[in-house]
Simulated assay, not measured.
Amino acid sequence: MASALPSPSALSSIASSAAVTVAKPPPKPFLKPHHRPLSTTLAAAAAAAAVLLSAAPAPSFADPMFNLYYGTAASAANYGGYGGNADKKATAEYTYEVPEGWKERLVSKVEKGTNGTDSEFYNPKKRSEREYLTFLAGFRSLAPVDAVLSNLALSDVGLQDQIATADEVRSQERKDDNGQLYYAYEIEGAGSHSLISVTCARNKLYAHFVTAPNLDWGRDQDMLRHLHDSFKTVDPSSSIKLQVEVKPAIATASFNLSIQKFWS
């Protein structure tokens, strides 16, 4: 018995039901580019720079170099030692530090004999920024603190003017590790600033001065205070010990030279 074939209309309905409809993807939305305001961009850049700067270590500046000066406080008659070849370190009566690059001003015998200036150094870039020492013989001990400053001004016209026009003059007393007494003065003048340290030893009065114009003082204050604090007198016993240690070495060298000449 033959089977009946489906009609064309039935085939059409079956095909339409079996067909798969493929949907097209929806169109991508148009995105308008977003630009940050200029102020926001600058603020972000500034914040990033601040973070970088805070993380970086602050620049460090090396302390200026200093040289130690040995002063002999010799009288005008013995100025320069025997032939100018005396060993200053072996005969030093005081020391103070001098900045690297400062120049020494040669003190004349007349100046040494009149106001007792023994040594002086100055900044070659600003000659009025200087450091110097004066001494006077015949002082066993310090007078009252106010009297000492007045007596120093008697032989220094510049110091007289500075004190007369000073906005403030401060003074204090201190003692070193050996118990030696020092007077420290600070004078804020109208045009310059000075630090003075005074003490007595070996029957002499030593006065160490550090002075600079006010503009230079504001720039170099830390360094100038360091110079002021560096001044001290040399213990006489240490000088004697040094000379005793040097002389046997010289004697031994002379003896060896004599032996060599004898056998040659």
Rank of each mutant, 00 (worst) to 15 (best):
73 A>R: 07
168 E>D: 14
28 K>L: 02
33 P>Y: 11
62 A>E: 09
52 L>E: 12
201 A>P: 00
166 A>M: 09
194 S>L: 13
142 L>P: 01
66 F>P: 01
70 Y>C: 15
103 K>T: 08
246 V>S: 08
221 Q>S: 15
228 H>V: 02
188 E>A: 08
198 V>Q: 01
252 T>L: 11
55 A>V: 08
215 L>A: 12
237 S>V: 09
175 K>E: 04
74 A>P: 00
9 S>E: 11
188 E>N: 06
208 H>Q: 08
165 T>V: 10
56 A>S: 13
256 N>Y: 05
173 E>F: 02
220 D>I: 07
16 S>N: 07
101 G>R: 03
209 F>R: 11
254 S>D: 09
144 P>H: 12
95 T>N: 05
128 S>P: 00
259 I>H: 08
138 G>Y: 05
109 K>M: 06
154 L>A: 07
112 K>Q: 04
151 N>E: 14
211 T>Y: 06
162 Q>I: 12
155 S>Q: 13
103 K>N: 09
40 T>H: 00
124 P>A: 07
63 D>P: 01
51 V>T: 09
213 P>H: 04
5 L>S: 06
242 L>F: 06
218 G>P: 02
235 D>G: 03
252 T>Y: 11
26 P>E: 12
145 V>C: 04
111 E>Q: 15
101 G>L: 08
63 D>N: 10
260 Q>Y: 11
68 L>K: 15
156 D>C: 11
40 T>P: 00
47 A>G: 12
105 R>C: 04
209 F>I: 15
135 F>P: 00
71 G>N: 12
110 V>K: 04
218 G>S: 06
261 K>P: 00
199 T>L: 04
181 L>E: 03
240 I>L: 08
221 Q>W: 02
98 V>E: 05
178 N>Y: 05
31 L>H: 10
253 A>R: 12
143 A>V: 09
107 V>I: 15
186 E>Y: 09
125 K>E: 04
199 T>P: 00
239 S>N: 05
139 F>N: 10
188 E>R: 04
191 G>L: 03
144 P>N: 15
179 G>P: 03
197 S>W: 01
29 P>H: 05
150 S>E: 10
112 K>S: 01
56 A>R: 11
255 F>H: 14
218 G>Y: 01
20 V>H: 03
201 A>E: 08
127 R>C: 00
27 P>D: 08
88 K>N: 09
54 S>A: 14
107 V>Y: 03
23 A>L: 05
189 G>S: 12
197 S>F: 03
145 V>E: 10
53 L>N: 06
207 A>H: 02
248 P>K: 13
72 T>S: 05
194 S>N: 06
159 L>N: 05
58 A>W: 03
79 Y>H: 06
107 V>W: 05
50 A>H: 14
228 H>G: 11
211 T>Q: 15
169 V>S: 01
259 I>G: 07
231 F>C: 10
102 W>Y: 13
203 N>R: 11
235 D>R: 09
205 L>M: 09
145 V>S: 07
225 R>G: 02
244 V>N: 09
68 L>N: 11
193 H>C: 03
153 A>F: 13
32 K>I: 08
220 D>L: 12
116 G>L: 05
156 D>A: 14
213 P>S: 02
42 L>E: 07
3 S>W: 04
216 D>P: 01
197 S>T: 14
77 A>P: 01
24 K>E: 11
